[in-house]
Simulated scan of single mutants.
Amino acid sequence: MIRLARVGARKQPYYRVVVIEKSRARNGRSVEVVGTYNPRTNPASVTLKQDRIDYWTAKGAQLSDRVAILVAKQGAPVAA
């Protein structure tokens, strides 16, 4: 699964976009970090490694709802 993992300090959220097994904890050990998301900037800053996201979705990884929205805003097609 490709989802967000929170790494920011208290009341200062900052997220990594990670590839992780679905059954693991939110901030558990991830397979790979494929991007970052900072909602505190205006507008929110998103950095994604689109080639790695495409690779993992081809291998069967699913995007979480929020990550699918971030990928769509980047202008890349979302794999179903």
Results as ranks from 00 to 15, higher is better:
K59F: 06
R40S: 11
A5Q: 11
S45D: 15
R52E: 10
A25N: 14
A25F: 13
Y37G: 04
R40L: 13
G35I: 05
S23M: 11
A9G: 09
A25V: 13
D54H: 10
G8H: 00
K22Y: 13
G28C: 03
R52Y: 08
R6S: 07
V31R: 09
V33T: 14
T47Q: 15
Y14R: 03
G35K: 01
N38G: 05
G28L: 01
D54W: 09
V31P: 06
L4D: 01
P43V: 04
K59H: 10
V18E: 06
A44C: 07
V19W: 00
S45C: 12
K49V: 11
R52H: 10
A44L: 06
S23K: 14
E32V: 03
A44S: 11
V17G: 01
T41R: 05
E21K: 15
A5R: 09
Y37K: 01
Y37N: 02
A9V: 04
R26V: 10
V33A: 14
V31G: 08
S45W: 11
A44K: 08
T36C: 05
Y15N: 01
P39C: 05
L4F: 00
R24T: 09
R6E: 13
E21T: 15
V7Y: 09
G8L: 00
N27S: 09
V17W: 00
V34K: 00
I53L: 05
Y14L: 06
V31H: 04
G35L: 02
Q50V: 15
K22N: 15
R26S: 12
V31L: 06
L48M: 06
R10A: 13
R24V: 08
I53C: 05
N38E: 07
V34N: 03
R29T: 11
V18W: 02
N42G: 07
T36R: 03
V33C: 15
R6D: 14
V34Y: 01
R29W: 14
V33Q: 12
E21I: 13
R24K: 05
T57N: 08
D54Y: 10
V7T: 07
D51V: 07
L4C: 01
S23V: 12
E21Y: 14
V19M: 02
Y15V: 01
S30A: 12
R24E: 07
V18N: 01
A5E: 10
Y37T: 03
D54L: 11
K11A: 09
Y15S: 04
T36F: 05
A25K: 14
A44E: 04
A58L: 13
K22F: 14
P39E: 02
P13Q: 02
V46I: 10
R10K: 15
E32Y: 00
T47G: 12
A58I: 11
V34S: 04
V31N: 03
A5K: 10
V46G: 08
K22T: 14
Y14M: 03
S45E: 15
E21S: 15
K22M: 12
I53E: 08
P13C: 04
R10D: 15
W56L: 02
R24A: 05
Q50W: 15
S30C: 13
V17T: 03
P43Y: 04
I20K: 03
G28R: 02
K11R: 10
Y15E: 03
G28Q: 00
